[in-house]
């Protein structure tokens, strides 16, 4: 997903260019917010996380290294870290409560996607197809790990499955998606 124009955007942001920052926001805010909405329980938490993510992007753009991660991956890593912190903080309050992950019959790529998400539509469609190719159980485990950001032990509890099975499913699913994405890129 490396896009050199986005690398340039991050470089400009690193030099304090607010116009580049707004361009990046237009590109990334939709996908990032969508992830935050699915990962976190409330809209307020998702909004706050999105804001925190962009504030960090502004602060840290000068440290971005394209050798370590593609631009979108880098921003997603920031958001996931923020969501993870939020999960930890809210864990006590929401112990045992699912974060609307198990019920996920919504279309994976909405027809209402706007310009910014068209940018990612192809990748999203590929991954969606790859996810569809997984068994229901494997997909469930992977989605809880990626979106729910909960430990394997908690996933095992939530799905009432042995821990070893959950570990295997997550690993298998991740490898399968990775392999499919790699073969498509090749």
């Amino acid at each position: 997903m490396t896009d050199h124009s986005e690398v340039r955007l991050l470089e400009r942001i690193g030099r304090g260019n607010s116009q580049a920052f707004e361009e990046l926001y237009q590109l990334y805010a939709g996908p990032l917010f969508s992830y935050a909405r699915k990962s976190l329980a409330t809209r307020e938490d998702a909004e706050e996380s999105l804001q925190d993510t962009f504030v960090k992007i502004w602060d840290r753009a000068h440290t971005y290294d394209e050798k370590l991660a593609a631009p979108f991956t880098w921003t997603m890593m920031i958001l996931r870290g923020i969501c993870m912190d939020k999960h930890r903080r809210l864990n006590a309050k929401r112990r045992g409560k699912s974060v609307e992950l198990t019920a996920a019959p919504e279309p994976r790529v909405s027809a209402e996607r706007t310009l910014e998400s068209l940018h990612f539509a192809e990748t999203a469609a590929q991954v969606s197809r790859a996810l569809e190719s997984l068994s229901q159980c494997d997909r469930e485990c992977l989605e809880l790990a990626v979106f729910g950001q909960i430990s394997q032990e908690k996933i095992a509890n939530q799905l009432n499955a042995p821990l070893g099975t959950v570990k295997t499913r997550i690993r298998r699913s991740l490898q399968k998606i990775r392999t499919l994405l790699k073969s498509h890129d090749a």
């Binding site: 997903m1 992830y35 593609a70 991956t73 997603m76 996931r80 209402e112 990626v146 979106f147 994405l181």
Partner: peptide, 13 residues
Amino acid sequence: ETMAGISLTAPHK
């Protein structure tokens, strides 16, 4: 990259 790709499958909001 794989994780970021999976993240993109969240319903658009």
